[in-house]
Design a protein around this nucleic acid. Structure first.
Length: 284
DNA sequence: GCTGCTGTTGGCGG
DNA sequence: CCCGCCAACAGCAG
């Protein structure tokens, strides 16, 4: 699932390849006349806000992409061919990138002046692509919580004041902190030795401090390993990230805890699958 | 082949 | 305001 480390890895790889390039043409599976406005525009900046990817264009508009659950962006080289049998358009790749099935669900393709292409592959079609004015973008940024990688400890601790919610759904609340999702929330709370359903208001100061420290440590590790490809996420190159190789608790139910050998459990907290060690992450 | 699970976000209703 | 539930959708395990 694309969370902060996956989106950050995507943005970094895109910046290396297409910063300053010009958008020339757009193809989309669903009719998107509005996206035609990007044609001829230069990509002046590419930035991450929480789990959002934003392309700042030279006319002041912002192309915003949210990958939701199964979306990911690919750099590639495809050509469009007609399938006469169904009259449906099909994409064929010249590169081995599409040999990975996850990379074959192309919904939108941006053609750049350099000849490069950026495609959105998204099996479940949940990803959101929109073209925003500056004001609309500012509103989105304003509604997001702080960046967990830049907030200071003092400010972080303040966020918890008066919050009654369970800690895991709170960490995943994008208005509380921007960028944490189900996988990293579980990993962070395991390292911090905090039970995922403990009410935030009941957390001791040391617990909040550990959450602060390990939020940063785990997210940075996620970025270093270029994200988690447990599910559909791939880098723009089409390759997998590496975080799925070092899960501490996520998807490890019934396997021994790396700290105490107790069996990892799966429960549901805030209607999300939640993995934790019942012995290392006691509620009291 | 069918059912239910997966998990992000927004919208709805209690 | 806050919570839970569901829909958007499609692949996939059982």
């Amino acid at each position: 699932m694309p969370e902060l480390p996956e989106v950050e890895s995507t943005v970094r790889e895109l910046k290396k390849n297409i910063l300053g390039d010009f958008l020339q043409d757009v193809w989309s599976e669903k009719e998107r006349k509005d996206l035609k406005r990007v044609e001829g525009k230069r990509i002046e900046e590419i930035r991450r806000f929480g789990k959002n990817i934003s392309f700042f264009l030279d006319n002041g508009e912002i192309l915003l992409i949210h990958l939701r659950m199964t979306g990911h962006l690919l750099l590639g080289n495809w050509e469009l061919k007609k399938n006469s049998a169904t009259e449906k358009e099909e994409w064929w790749s010249k590169e081995p990138i599409l040999q990975d099935k996850r990379n074959g669900f192309l919904r939108v393709i941006f053609f750049l002046a350099s000849g490069k292409q950026v495609a959105l592959s998204d099996p479940r079609k949940f990803a959101k692509v929109s073209l925003l004015q500056k004001k609309e973008m500012e509103k989105i940024i304003q509604e997001l919580g702080p960046n967990p990688l830049s907030i200071k400890k003092k400010e972080f601790k303040k966020l918890f004041e008066g919050r009654k919610k369970e800690i895991k759904p709170l960490l995943m609340d994008q208005a509380f902190l921007a960028g944490i999702g189900n996988i990293y929330a579980a990993e962070i709370l395991f390292k911090a030795k905090v039970n995922p359903c403990k009410k935030a208001s009941l957390l001791k100061e040391e617990e909040v401090e550990r959450i602060y420290y390990f939020t940063r440590e785990i997210l940075k590790k996620g970025i270093k390993l270029k994200g988690d490809s447990t599910s559909d996420y791939r880098l723009p190159s089409g390759k997998k990230g590496g975080y799925q190789e070092c899960h501490l608790v996520y998807k490890r139910d019934n396997l021994p805890c790396f700290e105490c050998k107790e069996k990892i459990k799966r429960t549901v907290v805030g209607s999300r699958g939640t993995y934790y060690c019942p012995s290392c992450q006691k509620k009291e």
